[in-house]
């Protein structure tokens, strides 16, 4: 059973931010509720004030800015909306593919992309993908707004760079140019993935110009693998290179001991999944 709370329904970001500042630790932002209500029901957290931000207009839009080469996604867009958006399917199909596999159909209907990211659960599929995709997040408060790179947003287990009076209002996703490709691979036997790997490769004149490689679900949040990135930069994308890179990724990734699977097994999975992610990203970069 849920304990009683006071519901607030602000109609602007400024109003919501002022409420957050006023109620401090007694308040939580409420949108889809898919993570929050579960924790409240299990008595793991209690908030006397829920601030329902769904009345704030304009936070669920999905649009492409071709001049800027990016897609903007409102934080209140549901997983299901991202999965089905014709614009995302056409211009960022990997995001639609990943979103179509988040949790289950009911969670995707209710849960918002912003809530997923702000909760910073280490098994989040979009969090891992967005770090590999170099997405940027807009955080807004009554005092103004700022932009944070996805890689800097996730600061620890269930922790983010969002200040208590800030709202995540939007996601800015760069549209990959031709010659670039991205992939997300995961393995799961239970509700949440046991391990995930995301890779984005920028290939120029037959060589990897830049790479962003990220391990997900095995640590305290999405983890970039800089040593592995350096290893493949300047190289020709091929299976031998990717096998060596996957080995290094598996050896160097931080593993948090939790869940159903052993650390050794999760390390093994990162190697397998990173090899697949690299191969698919390279294939997409070439197409």
């Amino acid at each position: 059973m849920l304990s009683a709370f006071t519901l607030h329904q602000p109609v602007s970001v400024t109003e919501a931010s002022e409420m957050l500042r006023h109620y401090g630790d007694d308040a939580a932002i409420y949108a889809g509720g898919t993570e929050l209500l579960v924790l409240m029901k299990e008595r793991l957290v209690h908030f006397a004030h829920l601030i329902d931000i769904k009345q704030i207009p304009g936070l669920s839009s999905i649009a492409v800015d071709d001049a800027a080469g990016s897609m903007s996604i409102g934080s209140l867009a549901s997983h299901r909306a991202l999965e089905r958006s014709p614009l995302i399917r056409e211009r960022a199909p990997l995001l639609a593919e990943v979103e179509s596999q988040v949790a289950n159909i009911r969670v995707r209907n209710a849960g918002t992309i912003g809530g997923n990211l702000c909760f910073a659960e280490p098994h989040s599929d979009p969090a891992t993908l967005f770090v590999a995709w170099d997405a940027h997040f807009t955080l807004a408060s009554a005092g103004g707004s700022r932009t944070v790179a996805a890689a800097d947003f996730f600061t620890g287990l269930l922790e983010t760079a969002r200040e208590p009076d800030e709202l995540l209002t939007g996601i800015d996703l760069p549209l990959l140019p031709s010659g670039a490709g991205s992939s997300y691979q995961r393995f799961k036997t239970h509700e949440r993935p046991a391990a995930a790997a995301a890779a984005t490769l920028w290939v120029e004149d037959g060589r990897i110009r830049d790479a962003r490689l990220v391990a997900g679900s095995v640590g305290i949040g999405p983890e970039r693998l800089p040593a592995t990135e350096e290893m493949i930069k300047g190289q020709e994308p091929d299976a031998t290179l990717f096998a060596r890179a996957a080995e290094l990724a598996a050896a160097s990734v931080f593993i948090e001991e939790e869940g159903f699977e052993s650390a050794e097994y999760k390390r093994h999975l990162i190697g397998v999944l990173m090899k697949r992610a690299l191969a698919q990203a390279a294939e997409r970069a070439a197409s």
């Binding site: 509720g33 898919t34 209500l37 579960v38 029901k41 289950n104 009911r106 969670v107 209907n109 209710a110």
Partner: peptide, 24 residues
């Protein structure tokens, strides 16, 4: 399950499935 994993409490809201156990 009461944590929206199992689907036994599924209802449709305007035709869309939701976990009624975790929907206000």
């Amino acid at each position: 399950c009461d944590v929206q994993v199992c689907g036994a409490c599924t209802m449709l809201l305007d035709g869309t499935p939701v976990s009624s156990c975790c929907t206000l």
